[in-house]
Structures are given as structure tokens and as C-alpha cells.
Design a protein around this nucleic acid. Structure first.
Lengths: 195, 195
DNA sequence: GTCTATACTTAGATAGAC
DNA sequence: GTCTATCTAAGTATAGAC
């Protein structure tokens, strides 16, 4: 059954995502991916324009889902409850199904993310979520606060080093901390005009 | 004066750190570094064993300084004031002089950091600072809290996107948020035994 | 002690045969 | 849809000029 055709493209995506996440994008050669699938490098080039293009292919869907989230969030009122709801949705995207594997790839490949077009887009979406969370006309303190709330979700994967902590627990802990940060967005800060 | 000897090694370090940070470690070729200095690739190999070795050379000093910080922090009492003092020292290392340029390199090169030996060491030190901040026998919530406090320092560089915000302001804002997180380490949490 | 010339290996990528 | 062959550029290594 190894020679079954048609799914080669998705098998490439699957193996590539796995290797890119485990050992890094740059450290993973196309030869390695090809060998794992029992084909040659050139075969990969039939299915994808370039190495970058493999990444783009499994990132596009994530971008779309984040765009939907941003649109939805931007239409909510700018209160604490809405910020919580937005972050909760973000966490669900992050921890859910295939979402998590792609997000982990980005977590593991921050450098590459800066160079790749899909990485730029992903980074842009992250900052936009932060912008929505920070609300209109935010103080720098609010900006930092909103961004760190998002990063609490990401950080729950590597900051909690006991492997026995489940993904559900990580998500729960991340949200608790993120809510604590978000609930004080717009609150008086040192150096902020009180009026 | 281009041929002035002796400082070639440090000029390599300087140019390499600059290019690695700007465009990423993998995207920067040795040829590019060599050309910028008006020498050949082989000349680099006289001064450094490998590309990795260039990174190691300017990271070693940072590791030492972080080790000193960790030793000092571990000898402090485990109260909120000491945690603040530890994080303040961390921020000073992060924002200070050459400290910042190397830290920025790591910020920009998270993937590489996982593969390089010096990167592993640096990552290890970060987590150790988080361990000290989280205190003895920490809850997962405390672990996440401590790690995010450190990341507030890092995040102040990219989360605050107005370039006119000075480094001093970033440091100040990062500390305010980090202190808010740290002051609640050890405090009662949902799901934590109160006794 | 400092560097150049040269060459080796492997990477990503392309053209064309089957 | 996949393979063979080949290209360019990367990191690496060494012999030897000065």
C-alpha cells in the first residue's frame, strides 16, 4: 500500500510539519523528507514550488481562521468580558486539533517565521489580536499587557515543564493568568492621566 | 588602515552579531560576513572553528553573567521583594550595553537557539531564573507566572511597536507588568489547596 | 601568526526523460 | 507523477603564501 497515489501531497505536508517542528525548519533537508516518504527530492518539487511553499500550504488555513477570529473580535464591545471571550477563542484555536501542531511549528521556528511570507502574515495576525485586546487608543502598558496575555497561551506549552501536565490543564492555567492581565486593560497605571 | 591586524577576530564577532540579528543566523552566510570585512571565508576559519563557534564566542560572556545572577538570586529570601530585585537585575542585564545586542540575537533566533549548544545553555539559564522566581515547590500557576514575568522583559522590545518608545520606557513598563505578576507568586489560586 | 587559493560535501532548485 | 542529472551556493577543510 506504500505506493498508493493521490495522497503524496498530504503525506509530504504531514512529514514536513513533523520534522520542521521537531528539529527546526532549516535543519530539516528536503532529502530527509523525501527519504522518509520513499521518493526523491524532485518529487517534492512536483507538489510544491519550494521548501517555503510547503510551510505556506499548511499555514494558509490557520491564517484564515485567525482572520475570522480578528473580524469577530473587532465587532465586540471593548469591555473585560469581551476581551476574555476573544482570548478564550484564541486559546481554543491554539490548543485545538491541527491548530496546535501548526502553532507549535511557529513556536519552534521563530526565526524562520520572520523570513517566510506566511510567517510574516502569522506574526501580523498575532499583533492584530493583541491590538483588539488592547482596545482603542491603548497606553503602552495596555499593549504590553494584551500581548503578554496571548503569550501566556503560548508559554503554557514550554513554561510548564512537567510532561504530565495535560493540554487541558495548560489551557486552563494560561487562561487564568491571561484573564488576570486582561481584566486590568484600561485600568489606571502609574504615569497615566487619570482624567 | 583596512589591513590593521589584531582586531579581525572582534570585527568578525561584531559584524556577525549584527547580521545574525538583522537577517537571522541561517540566512547569513559566511561569505557575506567575509565580504563585509574584506577577507575570504577561509580567514573566518582561522579565527573560529565553525559558524556555530562565532555565536558561542559572544554568548559565553552572557552565560557567565546569567550564572552569577542565578547564584545570587538563589541565595535571596523567597519573598516578593527579593523576586522583584532578581527580575530588576535580569532586566538590567537584558537592556544593558552589549547585553542587549546578544539578547536581541537570541530573541530573533529562537530556532537556532534550540540547536546550538550555546543556545541550549542560554535557554537553560532562562528557565533557571524562572525556577528561582517561582520559589520552592511552586504550583504550575506560579511557574507560568514567573516565566511570563521574564517574558514581559523580552516582550517589551517587540510588543511596543511605536519606535519612539525609548529603551528606558520599555524597561520601566516591563518591570511594572512583571512585578504585578511576581507579587502574586505563592498567592492562593483557583484549584490550589488553601492550607 | 594571519590570511588566500582551492577543493570537498551537501543544500535547494530546475530541466527533461519516462 | 516520479526519476536522473545537473546547477549554484552554502558550510567546511586544508595546503601553503607571506
Amino acid at each position: 500500500m506504500t505506493g498508493s497515489t493521490g495522497d503524496t501531497r498530504s503525506r509530504i505536508q504531514q512529514v514536513a510539519l513533523e520534522l520542521f517542528t521537531e528539529q527546526g525548519y532549516e535543519k530539516t533537508s528536503l532529502r530527509e523528507i523525501a527519504e522518509r516518504l520513499g521518493v526523491t527530492k524532485a518529487a517534492l518539487y512536483y507538489h510544491f514550488k519550494s521548501k517555503d511553499d510547503i510551510v505556506d500550504s499548511f499555514v494558509a488555513d490557520r491564517i484564515n481562521r485567525l482572520d475570522q477570529l480578528i473580524d469577530w473580535a473587532a465587532r465586540q464591545p471593548t469591555d473585560a468580558a469581551s476581551r476574555r471571550a476573544t482570548l478564550r477563542r484564541y486559546a481554543e484555536e491554539f490548543f485545538g486539533n491541527e491548530g496546535q501542531s501548526v502553532m507549535r511549528f511557529f513556536e519552534q521556528n521563530q526565526t524562520v517565521v520572520k523570513q517566510l511570507s506566511s510567517g510574516q502574515m502569522m506574526r501580523d495576525r498575532l499583533l492584530r489580536v493583541a491590538d483588539v485586546l488592547a482596545g482603542p487608543d491603548p497606553t503602552p502598558g495596555d499593549q504590553l499587557r494584551a500581548t503578554m496575555a496571548i503569550f501566556a497561551v503560548h508559554g503554557s506549552l514550554f513554561a510548564l515543564r512537567q510532561p504530565e501536565i495535560s493540554l487541558e490543564q495548560r489551557q486552563q492555567l494560561a487562561l487564568e493568568l491571561a484573564f488576570e492581565l486582561l481584566d486590568r486593560v484600561g485600568a489606571p497605571e502609574p504615569g497615566r492621566p487619570t482624567g
